[in-house]
Design a protein around this nucleic acid. Structure first.
Length: 256
DNA sequence: ATGGCTACTCCTAGTAGA
């Protein structure tokens, strides 16, 4: 059994005690992190290496940043999208683990509807789709996971009518997500739990977590051959509780 | 629910996140 997790940690340095404790008890074979918010030379490698993890990082100062922490060997690391400029925002890292291609993404938030940042978000989705089509086959075992910054459907939103048409639940974002499903990817959490109203992100403000005001925006998308081996996908909402949590909960997949 | 928080920075105010 292979255990693979994705977690937007919202600063790996600010989250280090929580991350260390979580890795210590959950012990995933691979953790895909987003929003590390740190340059590669300042990434707190030693703390995670002491827990038996090897790190592949792709970060920058202040914003963005993705990383892989693996207890098993990974190969064929690719950083960024193929058409990224050298100074592009660091939002994607790929690797192969036990024959499974892993693509870890931090999709742009989009800031606000109608802004250049929102256009950048939609274009980023299109470029992600192009990268998959150019470098992978939907017949191969592939996991595309991370923070997608869009809730796919009504059942992924605590109050769909309030959120409809807003950032993170907008028709243009749904249209940007659709080609990934059309290419062949399956939302593994949703496939296993059709009725579940579970979320992965809650605003820090207004006691949103305790009021249940959440969205499911952190996804595990799998090609059919991998989804067929996936026994469970769960959201660890315990990790959103307590002292200095990330605003996102980890999502964990168990694969035969 | 238009922000009541959090984390960042040439840091104590402004920016961004989602």
């Amino acid at each position: 059994m292979l255990k693979i997790a994705t977690w937007n940690v919202n600063s790996v340095r600010a989250r280090l005690p929580r991350l260390e404790a979580w890795l210590g008890h959950e012990r995933p074979d691979l953790l895909c992190m987003q929003e590390s918010k740190v340059t590669d030379e300042l990434f707190p490698r030693e703390t995670l290496e002491a827990l038996g993890y090897r790190l592949d990082v792709f970060g920058q100062k202040t914003y963005n940043g993705v990383a892989l922490a693996a207890r098993k060997p990974v190969s064929d690391i690719v950083r960024g999208l193929p058409d990224d400029s050298p100074d592009a925002e660091r939002r994607l890292i790929s690797a192969t683990l036990e024959g499974i291609r892993i693509v870890n993404v931090y999709v742009p938030n989009g800031t606000a509807l109608g802004t250049p940042r929102f256009t950048f978000k939609l274009e980023w989705f299109a470029r992600l789709r192009e990268m998959l089509a150019a470098t992978a086959s939907p017949d191969d075992p592939l996991l595309l996971c991370g923070d997608f910054n869009v809730a796919p459907e009504d059942r992924d939103v605590h109050d769909p009518e309030k959120w409809r048409g807003r950032l993170l639940f907008h028709p243009a974002e749904h249209a940007a997500l659709r080609p990934l499903f059309e290419w062949g990817l399956i939302d593994a959490f949703r496939a296993l739990h059709p009725e579940a109203r579970q979320f992965t992100w809650w605003d820090y403000r207004a006691g949103a977590f305790h009021r249940g005001w959440g969205l499911r925006i952190d996804l595990m998308l799998m090609t059919p051959s991998l989804a067929a081996r996936c026994r469970e996908v769960r959201i660890d909402r315990e990790a959103r509780k307590g002292e200095k949590p990330s605003d996102h909960a980890p999502v964990i997949a168990e694969i035969d």
